[in-house]
Structures are given as C-alpha cells and as structure tokens.
C-alpha cells in the first residue's frame, strides 16, 4: 500500500508502515537525529528529529523517526517551534556529552554554544546520551550483552550484573554505532579491550591486520557453518587472494 503526503509542500510517496524520517531522508530533506539508525527499530529517544505534522484537523509536534506515515498529511520540518524545542533538547544533551564534537556542532547550528546545565547526577559512561543505539545493535546481532539498566534519571547503559559478559563477542558494533563515540574500545597486540574484557584477535594470515575477535569467529562458525579458514584473512587480502586465484585459472 502506498501513502502520499507532503513534506514542506513537496509531494512524496512512501510505503504504508514506513517511518517518516526514513522517507524524508530518502527525498533529501535534512532532519537531524542522534538515536536513529535505518537498520534498527526506532525508539524516539533523543527527541531531535522533531517535525510538525498536520492531518485530519490535528496538528502535532512529533519525532519523525518513529512516526508511521499517514495518507494526506502535511509535514513541516523546520518551524520555529521545531527549532526552539530542538535547541532545548540539544542543550540538555550537551550537558551529558560535552565531549562529543558531533553534538557540539549540531547544537551550534541551533545557536546552542554552551549549556546552562551542569553534568547530570548519574552518568557512569561519560558523554553517553542514552540513545540506546548500542543496545539495539547488540540485540539485533543476537548477542544480547548490553542492556539498559535502571530507569528515569538513573538510567544507564550496562551489562548484566554489571560484570563482563560471556555474550559480548567484542565485535565493537556498539562503539561504531555510537553517535558520541563514548564507548571505549582499544585494539592492542593482546587483543581488543571493550566492556571490561580483552578479546584475543584473529589476525590476517597475509597482512597481520585484525580480522575479528576469536569469539566473533567462533560464533560465526557456529552460525554459518563455514570452515575456520574462511576467517583467516582480512577483507582486502581475501579479495586479492581470490583475484590471484582467479587469474591463475584463466591464464
């Protein structure tokens, strides 16, 4: 089923059940957001992707990431109200993550150069804005090592029982999806250190670059049933080995 509506007076089309932010971005509209990733279910946490939506005599200020498109609605992406409240929510987040360059830059676009609020009372992970992208990514990958702990002003990101998790494969997807780059991850000769444990790494047999962690490989082998050797090479070496093999066959 198709849905037709207008964004900033421009006609757009979407599939029923699609979320407004995804559609808007597809059409090139710029709506900022910090907690959204197109591969993960939206939760509407950061409250930055606000837009104004009017339909059936109603007018609502809402987040576009988790708003299912409605036939005939009119969306405005940058009204004064949207700008005003975005700025306030950015100021609130800036107090949580003053170290994030991306957040500082975004806030500055809305005229927020400093925050009137001090550091939050509970924030064990500096610069974390509690967007849950890491938790959602970890769940989506089937690892379930990370979770939200507590609630309200005490909510935080953490591991079961606050101790290193056997579920964590050290894949670092959480760190790579984090909008404020607040999850510490470090690769050394000993392995990859993340979330309180160090995971030995599988190194590429050709160039020595880290391919993945041993736990990741074990999990991948169990899941996909490919031979262990499949994971011996990094992506680029895998490609060049394959092309050499291909060349020897052809010539």
């Amino acid at each position: 089923m198709e849905r037709r509506f207008k964004i900033n007076d421009i006609d757009v089309k979407a599939r029923a059940g699609e979320h407004l932010l995804d559609v808007a971005r597809r059409y090139g509209f710029e709506i900022p957001s910090l907690c959204h990733h197109e591969a993960l279910p939206p939760i509407g946490a950061c409250r930055i992707c606000l837009v104004e939506v009017a339909w059936g005599g109603r007018r609502e200020l809402c987040t576009s990431c988790n708003f299912e498109v409605i036939e005939g609605m009119q969306v405005t992406t940058d009204t004064p109200a949207v700008q005003h409240h975005r700025a306030m929510n950015l100021e609130l987040l800036l107090a949580r993550a003053p170290g994030s360059a991306r957040l500082r830059e975004l806030a500055a676009q809305y005229g927020v150069r400093r925050t009137r609020f001090g550091p939050p009372a509970t924030s064990p992970l500096p610069n974390c804005i509690l967007c849950e992208l890491c938790v959602r990514a970890c769940e989506q990958l089937g690892n379930h090592a990370l979770t939200m702990v507590g609630r309200g002003d005490k909510k935080r990101i953490g591991l079961a029982f606050n101790s290193p998790s056997e579920q964590c494969t050290g894949c670092a997807s959480c760190a790579s999806v984090c909008p404020t780059e607040c999850i510490p991850v470090k690769d050394t000769a000993a392995g990859r250190t993340i979330w309180g444990q160090t995971h030995p790494l599988v190194l590429c047999k050709v160039c020595g670059a880290p391919v993945m962690t041993e736990r990741q490989r074990a999990k991948a082998i169990a899941k996909k049933g490919l031979p262990e050797e499949y994971y011996d090479f990094c992506e680029s070496c895998k490609q060049s080995t394959a092309s050499k093999r291909f060349a020897s066959i052809v010539w």
């Binding site: 379930h144 090592a145 990370l146 979770t147 939200m148 702990v149 507590g150 609630r151 953490g158 591991l159 079961a160 029982f161 998790s165 579920q167």
Partner: peptide, 25 residues
C-alpha cells in the same frame, strides 16, 4: 541474588542482560 536471576533467565529463555534490565527497571 545473581544466581537466582541467572537461573530464572535460563528457565524463561531470555538473555541475562534482558532480565537484568527488567529487574533494575
């Protein structure tokens, strides 16, 4: 206690992290 929660997680078939998230909520 932690041991009880671990057993509950395995009994109910939910990840420990999920159960911990719920118990602390």
């Amino acid at each position: 206690p932690r041991q009880a929660l671990e057993r509950a997680a395995s009994h109910l078939g939910v990840p420990e992290a999920h159960l911990f998230g719920v118990a602390t909520f």
